[in-house]
Amino acid sequence: MLDKIQKDREKRQSAWEAVINYFRKRSLYMLHYCTGCGAIELPPIMTSRWDMERFGIAPMATPRQADILLVTGYASQKTIKRLIYTYEQMPNPKWVLGFGSCTINGGIYWDSYNVINKLDRYIPIDLFISGCMPRPQSILSAMKKLQEMIGKGEAKGYERYKQNYEWYKKNQRKLLERETPFLDGGEK
């Protein structure tokens, strides 16, 4: 009996979630963290050529109000720190879009001493956009895809971050708070 009530409640909650998710996917406030060259692709998406506002996506100035964190391009060791700080300031639910090859595997900077290769080791990324640079169309299609995922309740990056918080913190700490050199050869 109790089980049944519990199950019913879960079902109801999920129905409630589904309704809310509809509103969430139709209204996304975006904080663009313009680290690299990718920022130049944003104006065409926002202005009259592609106009992302028709999908309910609007730019916002502060992380407190944002739903999406758009990381446009590579993140260096120094920027990743700001990125994590910003991401943690955003209230739930929140999603991260990795933009361009650099966020996937470092792109052309893959063997550089300061460019992060895999961004999703440090913050949970819901969707990557491949390309160097990705064209505005692909960004828009990624947005649509993200909306679809949110609508279905699949985009759960923020919950992944909560569940695997220790793992993410460990990776972040390894990079940012290291005490020994990575390579032999040691101190300068």
Binding site: I20, R26, S27, S48, R54, P91, P93
Partner: peptide, 23 residues
């Protein structure tokens, strides 16, 4: 501005989403 623009009920969606968002 020669854009298509959001639907006219966009503001309602925004408000409901914001009210449902954690603060």
């Amino acid at each position: 501005q020669k854009r298509y623009g959001p639907p006219f009920y966009q503001q309602f969606i925004d408000v409901i989403k914001l009210l449902a968002k954690e603060s």
